[in-house]
Design a protein around this nucleic acid. Structure first.
Lengths: 189, 189
DNA sequence: GTCTATACGAAGATAGAC
DNA sequence: GTCTATCTTCGTATAGAC
């Protein structure tokens, strides 16, 4: 298949970004982990590492978006639960060795364009979450700030849980988040 | 002074960690930014970079702890405001180019001991925040999970704001956090 | 589309002089 | 306590053959 190697590299880069950060997602590591042939790097990614990372970010974005989209129409607390669960799965599936690729790029990027790509991912998530929360019963005036809270707290909780190697504090944060969203929905009936 | 150069290196490492991540806090960068002499690296830090980073983490921990300690005895919402303000200042003072050193280490460390050091910092913050929130009027059963929420959401909001290069979403998260803490305090009077 | 070889720089680390 | 020099490894990137 024409694009199989390429896609595998992007998936592997996304995983390495989440697990070991921007520096850990080196070409050597990506090749070793993906089994892709060394000679094909600049064939598939003529702009080098930044291009590979940018596509890994796009993949991470799409994954979360797709998962969230599956919960369109559900109540706001259920939407919140779905978003939080997405990150909980990342932690557990990786035995606390993985986090968020977008975060990894944001805190380690030395190139502006890459930070802007990361910001774009956060904006996309913010947009769909705001939409889903409003649809799910949260007053529209509050939906945006609750979406911001969900994203920020989830990302932060992933980091703390990773450092600890335990799910406890992530779950504590998750419960608080769902409660806040539920309370916001009850106000307007 | 015996320790002046050394302290300057640690402070610079903490700053570089926050600004450019673990990879950006290289010896060359630390030396260039601190003005410290190259020959003194392994004199002051015989265990190399990991030792320097570990001390930078300890510094970051102490700074937040000291700032929080100044608010002992205040109401829970004021404690929450103080913690959030601490991170807001980091963003604004750096023009959105700096975040949290502990986060940077957690998401990029390839050595376990360093991740454990990062976890220790989060635990310290968790401990004092839980204490201050309980003292400030939050039911003790809830203080710990609210402390976790404060830490996670603040760290996450810092990352998002950094990527965006704007304070808006950080402030939205901050407001939500203070409200949640305030509401938790009102329950028990 | 994939290969080998190679250039170039940066990073961590060590040795030994001063 | 600080200096210079050097070593090794690794990462990005390019050239040119197949």
């Amino acid at each position: 298949m024409v694009t199989e190697t390429r896609e595998k590299m992007v998936r592997t880069a996304a995983l390495l970004l989440a697990k070991r950060g921007l520096q850990g997602a080196s070409f050597s590591e990506v090749l070793a982990a993906s089994g892709a042939p060394r000679g094909s790097i600049y064939h598939h990614f003529p702009e080098g590492k930044d291009q590979l990372v940018a596509e890994a970010l796009a993949l991470a974005q799409a994954r979360a978006m797709d998962e969230l989209e599956r919960h369109r129409g559900e109540s706001a607390p259920d939407v919140a639960r779905a978003f939080v669960q997405l990150w909980r799965d990342v932690l557990l599936a990786s035995d606390f060795s993985a986090g968020c690729a977008v975060v990894a790029v944001t805190v380690a990027a030395d190139a502006e364009p890459l930070v802007e790509k990361a910001a774009a991912v956060f904006r996309e998530w913010q947009g769909i979450l705001t939409d889903l929360l409003a649809t799910g019963g949260v007053p529209s005036a509050r939906a945006a700030s609750l979406a911001s809270l969900l994203i920020a707290a989830s990302e932060g909780a992933v980091i703390v849980a990773r450092a600890e190697g335990a799910i406890d504090r992530f779950d504590a944060v998750a419960e608080e988040l769902v409660e806040v969203v539920a309370a916001a929905g009850e106000v307007s009936g």
